[in-house]
Design a protein around this nucleic acid. Sequence first.
DNA 1: ATACTTTTGTGATTTTTTTCACATAAAAAA
DNA 2: TTTTTTATGTGAAAAAAATCACAAAAGTAT
Lengths: 203, 203
Amino acid sequence: MKTSKQSILRLFQYRDFLIRLKNINTVNVFSDNLAKDIGTTSIQVRKDFSLFRLSGNKKAGYKVSNLLKQLDELLGKNKKQKVVIVGAGNIGKALMQYDGFYKEGLEIAALFDYDRRKYNHKNNPPVLPIEDLFKFVSSNNVKIGIIAVPCKAAQQVLDLMISAGIKGAMNFAPIPLKSPKNFYINNINLRVELESVVYYTQM
Amino acid sequence: MKTSKQSILRLFQYRDFLIRLKNINTVNVFSDNLAKDIGTTSIQVRKDFSLFRLSGNKKAGYKVSNLLKQLDELLGKNKKQKVVIVGAGNIGKALMQYDGFYKEGLEIAALFDYDRRKYNHKNNPPVLPIEDLFKFVSSNNVKIGIIAVPCKAAQQVLDLMISAGIKGAMNFAPIPLKSPKNFYINNINLRVELESVVYYTQM
DNA sequence: ATACTTTTGTGATTTTTTTCACATAAAAAA
DNA sequence: TTTTTTATGTGAAAAAAATCACAAAAGTAT
Ligand SMILES: NC(=O)c1ccc[n+]([C@@H]2O[C@H](COP(=O)([O-])OP(=O)(O)OC[C@H]3O[C@@H](n4cnc5c(N)ncnc54)[C@H](O)[C@@H]3O)[C@@H](O)[C@H]2O)c1
Ligand SMILES: NC(=O)c1ccc[n+]([C@@H]2O[C@H](COP(=O)([O-])OP(=O)(O)OC[C@H]3O[C@@H](n4cnc5c(N)ncnc54)[C@H](O)[C@@H]3O)[C@@H](O)[C@H]2O)c1
């Protein structure tokens, strides 16, 4: 494929590093620096760039700000994105309080829960009743959702998101969810990630 | 490769489904059921099993309890694992309160922080001073760690873990960490995961 | 008992991803 | 200026992963 899934993930990582470089006023960077940072090879870096027609200068590497601009364009980082979280529990609240999203144009617009004890209309972002999700999502044109509810509620929450017009979701519930083909879902299974650490540690 | 990385991750997912099946007293399962559940094909399932010499019965599929037993063995799920978390902040506390780990033999033995306001010796698991990590890890024979501290502290925390005898870690800090080759590190970058949802949603 | 159907198991094939090999350009040195 | 050194860029090759194609077994129907 021209645009491989793996490459895209790496492009986001290169971008991260470039932002750090920019913050310390670094002007130039080599494929080798990028490779070291994300833990791959310079060949892989250049191949990724080649795939997306990102080019630098022979012998002189890449201009940080220029490359960053091109990556922003490519990865759609020029427009801000509103995100809603359903489930104001442990994970939902942790994500809500994380400032790293906002910095990257990801605005947690609101959380939703069905437990009235979690409601907090004055908080920023507010924690609202799940009944308000449909209206909120459609009137605020939200396209991205995060599912942070227990397994048994996950499918119904996803269905609600889809009906409200959300187009993609990150799901923390460790259960497979059904969604239409034009909906993108990214399942995060932290337990399996930890279990795999145990596995590879024992090898 | 005989034991592919992708296959291993899927084996953990198959195992999850099998546990759910066992809980509802299902005796038999077909490769197709397993495939549907984790979102792959039956061919992939059988190929994964073939790779690890897991076999079933023609026409009759697999015995849930038998397959589960073999997977437990293969994935090293027969012995419990102690895990320590460094950083008792948003992520650290969310993981601490998650009961899904303990159920799968992953015991959060303790959390560590450098902020004395976080300490809680009486909690289960306790939140202890970072200075106690070395002793705790070596005397409790802990092999797995979770890094849930800010970026700027992540490398020093990892170094401390390694010196204390930890062999593998799950890292939430979105920064590359240096570790020896015999140390396994699984980097979880939730922002990139969310950004990729945005990317694919816009395609 | 025989034919039919369904499902596993795996070698062969295809696709995807990574790595190699080297041409090419530009800066630095001679 | 000419040579040398050091990067990039990309087709070709290799490796890894997924899919195909079909044989073989075992259950069900006739
Ligand atoms: N906490 C962790 O570290 C962790 C780790 C791995 C996976 N997960 C998964 O992430 C998900 C959330 O975990 P958590 O620890 O935050 O759970 P939690 O119990 O702390 O929070 C869940 C929240 O969802 C709300 N909720 C339940 N049903 C709802 C519904 N139908 N509509 C709206 N809100 C509803 C609850 O009121 C609660 O506030 C779970 O599926 C869990 O398996 C969590
Ligand atoms: N919260 C999220 O949703 C989220 C999302 C993506 C990534 N992350 C990453 O996960 C990590 C933790 O995030 P968080 O939101 O839990 O942060 P946090 O600030 O809530 O918690 C960090 C904790 O680490 C402790 N700490 C700091 N330096 C330490 C040190 N040297 N030794 C021991 N303890 C130390 C602090 O006292 C604090 O309790 C960060 O690297 C963050 O970038 C978090």
